[in-house]
């Protein structure tokens, strides 16, 4: 199989059938083929975290996965998280704390923060910082992001 491949998966709850070049990564597929531009290409080598999405319920780097590897997978992007309401509490906290400036890292940050919260993470600032350390933010200094995650968890920060 070279050149193009067939792909069937679910993206934000909708079935997607597509023919994609096998070399196209999942991030480019989401952005350019599906128009889901909320996930961002910050480095294209898996370091910055701006393309972090959920695949089968866990965070992955969209730039480090081929679109064809998503065959049969359930993919959720920041758009899906917003539509379903899953990110609503985080979004409110990010707004209240100004935990974003340019917003380029934000979709990946939301996905990673959600994984931390849903995984039962506590309001431990060091643990939150460690969990989010694969998501670069060049604007905020991170503190407001940690504040926002703590707010959602609801406990007093350690």
């Amino acid at each position: 199989m070279t050149g193009m491949a067939r792909l069937t998966c679910r993206v934000n709850g909708e079935e997607v059938r597509a023919e994609v070049p096998v070399r196209r990564n999942l991030l480019d597929f989401l952005r350019n083929d599906l128009g889901l531009t909320g996930s961002h290409a910050g480095c294209e080598h898996g370091v910055c975290g701006a393309c972090t999405i959920l695949v089968d319920g866990v965070t992955v780097r969209g730039c480090l996965m081929l679109a064809v590897q998503a065959e049969g997978a359930e993919v959720v992007t920041v758009e899906g998280l917003a539509e379903s309401g899953r990110s609503a509490a985080l979004a409110a906290a990010f707004t209240a704390r100004n935990a974003l400036q340019c917003g380029f890292c934000t979709p990946g940050m939301i996905a990673s923060a959600l994984e931390y919260i849903d995984g039962g993470g506590g309001p431990d600032r060091a643990a939150i910082r460690a969990h989010l350390s694969g998501n670069y933010c060049r604007c905020t200094g991170y503190q407001a992001v940690v504040d926002a995650v703590c707010d959602v968890i609801g406990g007093a920060a350690k």
Partner: peptide, 10 residues
């Protein structure tokens, strides 16, 4: 404009 960015609508 935060809401837009938080929903992937930048």
């Amino acid at each position: 404009d935060a809401a837009r960015l938080l929903q992937g609508r930048g």
